[in-house]
């Protein structure tokens, strides 16, 4: 099967800044793919290159097998991009904006689909409101709608939930999940790691214009993050030496890693034997934030600038 997105050795330099330093990435059809990285890692540049908004210095990008430069008509028709910036055309109503956007892709009379998108994004009541009068969250929904109006099989969302209320996030993800289940490929960049963790099957992490990690979400969590017992100790003896060596202390909490729940009892027994007073206790689930921090640390130590 042709990959939904195929990126080979893509480089892009802005003056002194190497925004993309040779990115290779292949995303399969039907994937829900996460693109993570700190600010300035090159996520948006990569997406812009894919959308034809930025011309890379080297390498090639394809959408469903169509080169985004040589075969731009096909490539752009197959791609829907939700830009990160909250941009809008102030002169028109929501419905007008969506009709125009469909028209730009050569599609006429698609009001049924527009109505469906509006309903799914909770925008129906705003269909005839001017763009200028919408709140930030509403404008964001329209941006999503604009990206979907030509029914692209590959959908890229660049931080779609930045500064957006909980309600929209729920509605949005419900809709995007449905589109994914119907066979569309979704690529997502986000700062909310719990979102990526909940939604994405595979995750690439970018730093300094390079892919520093690429794996299934499950593997990433297993590799880099373990379950841990979090303890806050009161007055009295400290954590026994044997435990302290394998644990991490942060703020007032000790984080003691374990593999299976069966181990918890023996860990607690050691703590009790040492005479420690437990003030607070919790069990930590593996989480992507920890993975993210570790991968970024490794990338720094590995010399990737």
């Amino acid at each position: 099967m042709i990959p939904a997105i195929s990126i080979r050795q893509v480089t892009k330099r802005y003056g002194d800044l190497q925004a993309l330093a040779g990115v290779d990435l292949e995303i399969n059809q039907g994937e829900f793919f996460g693109l993570l990285g700190p600010n300035g890692a090159g996520k948006t540049t990569l997406i812009s290159a894919l959308a034809g908004l930025v011309r890379p210095d080297g390498g090639s990008l394809e959408v469903m097998g169509h080169d985004v430069h040589k075969d731009y008509r096909a490539a752009r028709r197959l791609l829907g991009v939700v830009p990160q910036e909250l941009v809008f055309d102030p002169f028109f109503t929501v419905r007008e904006v969506l009709r125009f956007q469909a028209g730009y892709f050569g599609i006429r009379r698609c009001d049924d689909w527009i109505d469906e998108i509006l309903a799914n994004l909770d925008l129906t009541a705003k269909a005839d409101s001017g763009m200028r009068s919408l709140s930030g969250g509403m404008k964001r929904r329209v941006l999503v709608a604009q990206a979907l109006v030509h029914r692209p099989p590959v959908i890229v969302l660049d931080e779609p939930t930045a500064g957006v209320d909980v309600e929209l996030r729920q509605t949005l993800w419900q809709f995007i999940r449905r589109l994914n289940e119907e066979g569309n490929t979704i690529v997502l960049t986000t700062h909310y790691l719990e979102e990526a963790e909940a939604l994405c099957g595979r995750i690439a992490m970018l730093k300094g214009g390079r892919v520093v990690s690429l794996d299934s979400t499950e593997n990433l969590l297993r590799k880099f993050s373990a379950q841990a017992l979090r303890l806050r100790l009161g007055e009295g003896p400290g954590l026994p030496e044997a435990l302290a060596q394998v644990s991490v202390q942060k703020d007032k909490y000790w984080s003691i890693p374990f593999q299976t729940y069966g181990q918890i009892e023996s860990l607690l027994a050691q703590v009790r034997m040492a005479g420690c007073v437990i003030e607070d206790m919790a069990v930590n689930q593996p989480d992507l934030e920890e993975v993210f921090v570790r991968v970024m640390q490794q990338a720094r130590e590995g010399g990737a600038s």
Binding site: R76, V87, D89, Q101, Y104
Partner: peptide
Amino acid sequence: QAKVMGSIVFILLPPIS
């Protein structure tokens, strides 16, 4: 206007020659 507001992307993303 489209450049300053950023709404120029709406005509750059589609395959308009």
